[in-house]
């Protein structure tokens, strides 16, 4: 997506490759060049901006706060319009695990997300490299096909693919969602390609001149340089798998032992007559791992979103 932000309208000197947004540590505006005295308007604007920002922050946060509060209530109270727990029940969180197969769902989700991510990297990094750094006939056409596939709503291919997996006896499990990752994921290929084109060719040429083959150029030179891009792609894939609902619904709905968190969560009410206090607790438990991953890898992730921002 950096490429997209280049625009003829900017007219400025071309930026060094790999610079721009990606090179920046933070997405905040650079500091003003020289200190100036603030005018009254500027102070007013400052206050206005921050009031809006704080108000927005509260609105973005409020849903989570209410969820947390409700998750500590009794079942009775969660059905009332009280906002604050009359008494605190942290045991609700333990109840979620004992009353529903939450632990099993968590494990399935983790297996799905981790394997899908690993497989995707194995297949998509080389493909992205070939699309970004090798010149061959049919490359543009292949790239167009990749973009088409990326943009294709999953519902379009649902029925034939379901039949295919059924034919292979793999429905009722998460494999129909994991195995295709060995054959490249369109979105990840696109994302990685966008990143790889920003790596200057001079580095590659050096490796090639040394007598390394293209594979060695990829492993020795490109991989270390593309680490942020790869991290971003991996994280997108991980998040996508973690959050996926349609895929598991389609392929595993009849086999509860293969369910993921999203699928389980959507069925808690009808299957386990779970009440709102437990449901909110389970909802929070589903969100937490994702948020943790985000906090540990915020930088790489923000870079990734910036780089493309297709699925996100």
């Amino acid at each position: 997506m950096t490429a997209l932000t280049h625009d003829s309208a900017s007219g400025g000197p071309p930026r060094p490759r790999g610079g721009g947004v990606l090179g920046r540590d933070d997405l905040t505006a650079p500091a003003p060049r020289r200190p100036r005295r603030r005018t009254r308007t500027e102070v007013l604007l400052f206050v206005a901006r921050h009031s809006i920002a704080i108000a927005l922050s509260l609105m973005f946060l409020a849903p989570v706060v209410f969820l947390v509060l409700t998750s500590f209530m009794t079942s009775d109270q969660s059905l009332t319009s009280n906002l604050w727990p009359a008494s605190w029940h942290p045991e609700n969180y333990a109840d979620v695990f004992t009353r529903t197969p939450m632990a099993k769902y968590l494990l399935n989700t983790a297996v799905y997300a981790v394997l899908a991510t690993l497989f995707m990297l194995l297949s998509s990094v080389p493909a992205a490299y070939a699309l970004a750094k090798l010149r061959w006939r049919g490359r543009n056409l292949t790239f167009v096909a990749i973009v088409c596939m990326m943009m294709l709503p999953p519902q379009v291919t649902t029925v034939p693919l379901y039949l295919m997996w059924a034919n292979w006896g793999l429905t009722g499990s998460l494999w129909p969602l994991i195995l295709p990752m060995l054959l490249g994921d369109a979105f990840s290929i696109f994302l990685l390609r966008q990143f790889l084109v920003t790596i200057p060719d001079e580095y590659l040429d050096a490796a090639r001149v040394d007598g390394c083959g293209e594979w060695r150029a990829l492993l020795r030179v490109v991989l270390p340089m593309a680490r942020p891009g790869i991290a971003a792609a991996a994280m997108f894939q991980f998040f996508y798998a973690w959050n996926d609902y349609y895929g598991p619904l389609l392929y595993t709905s009849e086999n509860e032992s293969a369910w993921t968190l999203s699928l389980g969560l959507a069925s808690f009410r009808s299957l386990h007559a779970v009440q709102w206090n437990l449901l909110t607790a389970a909802t929070l438990l589903t969100m937490v791992p994702i948020m943790l991953v985000f906090f540990f890898a915020q930088k790489a992730f923000v870079q990734g979103v910036t780089l493309t921002g297709v699925k996100g």
Partner: peptide, 18 residues
Amino acid sequence: KSGQDDTKMLQAIGAGQG
């Protein structure tokens, strides 16, 4: 297997499992 429904059952039978 408990907690099933007709949609799942039809789908699974169609998939040759069920």
